[in-house]
């Protein structure tokens, strides 16, 4: 951020960075709260309901109250769990979700690090969360949670493959793994990658949806089969951590998608008088809205179908996309 990382270490710089991180954490928390609020409102409206409307004006404080309730709840640790793992699993799962945000450039100047392998960093770090989920599921010593944990792992590992392959096309086109370079490439060419990389975009959308464990791919928590999946034994703020992880990933993944496919902070149609951060937020909200919209519409797929779909459907398509991009690139079209 502002080149601090390139400077010599000093306590001042460290403090600035730490404060910035806390600020970001607050922003993310705020986002999570209002994302949940937004989700409940949107789904409510789609189901002819009003959604939260009783706490505060238009129910704006509903999720705040919910979070508060979760935080001050008694911290229940069941007797027969593997205590140590049970306690750290939510943390293991949450930390990476927050770490990945560091790599995302929100605007030209607002970003935390400018890593050259930003994409790789994202992919690598985000897969760490699975460990937390698996540990949580296993440590809970509950049959439902272990099944939920296993499902999660199977699902997330499977969908990571098409997810990463889907942006290989972009990497081929720009020749860089740096997220800022990718946005710049889009600004320079004047065309967002959603158009030349439409297949990649669709694959990313589906695989991302699955990575986030959201409907129609919310099997790990499939309430009606597994009660609540891997966090069935969790309550209070540990449960809140798992929830948080999920929504922070929603934040991170949607941001990544905006960066990769929707031109980041680039203003379309030359509407540059609107500040770039607003553009970023708008595109971002659009994607988040889609996720909620899908949740209001689709039933859940089955675990077997899910796996089949990843390996027999998405991965071949993603591979094809990579090949196509490579061929087109060699022919000089891109």
């Amino acid at each position: 951020m502002f080149g601090i990382l390139d400077q010599q270490f000093s306590w001042l710089n460290f403090t600035i960075l730490a404060l910035a991180a806390v600020a970001l954490l607050l922003v993310v928390l705020l986002f999570v709260m209002y994302a949940i609020y937004f989700e409940r409102k949107v789904i409510g409206w789609m189901q002819l309901r009003k959604g939260p409307n009783r706490t505060g004006p238009w129910g704006l404080f509903q999720t705040v109250a919910d979070v508060l309730k979760l935080l001050i709840k008694e911290d229940v640790v069941p007797k027969k769990v593997d205590r140590f793992l049970f306690l750290i699993a939510p943390i293991i799962s949450f930390t990476p979700s927050f770490m990945v945000i560091a790599a995302i450039p929100f605007t030209e100047n607002l970003y935390f690090t400018d890593i050259n392998v930003g994409l790789l960093y994202y992919g690598a770090i985000s897969s760490l969360s699975i460990t937390g989920i698996l540990l949580g599921g296993w440590a809970s010593n509950n049959k439902y949670s272990i099944m939920g944990g296993m499902r999660s792992v199977a699902q997330m590992i499977s969908y990571e493959v098409p997810l990463i392959m889907s942006f290989l096309g972009i990497v081929l086109m720009t020749g860089s793994l740096n997220l800022r370079d990718i946005v710049h490439a889009q600004i320079d060419s004047g065309i967002w990658f959603i158009f030349p990389q439409f297949i990649g975009f669709v694959v990313f959308l589906i695989a991302g949806n699955a990575e986030l464990n959201r409907t129609p791919f919310d099997l790990p928590e499939a309430e009606n089969e597994l009660v609540a999946g891997y966090f069935v034994e969790y309550s209070g703020f540990r449960f809140a951590f798992f929830m948080l992880t999920e929504y922070v990933y929603t934040f991170a993944l949607s941001s990544l998608m905006v960066t990769l496919f929707l031109g980041g902070w680039d203003a379309p149609f030359g509407l540059t008088f609107i500040p770039p951060i607003v553009w970023f937020a708008l595109k971002f909200l659009l994607l988040v809205f889609y996720l909620f919209w899908a949740r209001a519409t689709f039933p859940r797929v089955k675990i077997q179908q899910l796996m089949e779909f990843a390996w027999k459907g998405l991965i071949p398509v993603a591979l094809f996309n990579v090949m196509l991009t490579a061929v087109l690139k060699t022919l000089g079209i891109f």
């Binding site: 789904i43 789609m46 189901q47 002819l48 309901r49 409907t215 129609p216 919310d218 499939a222 309430e223 009606n224 949740r295 209001a296 519409t297 689709f298 039933p299 859940r300």
Partner: peptide, 15 residues
């Protein structure tokens, strides 16, 4: 359908 994870039909049916 709620059991299949589709949450909306339930509300429409109950309306």
């Amino acid at each position: 359908l709620l059991d299949l994870g589709a949450i909306s039909p339930f509300l429409f049916a109950f309306r």
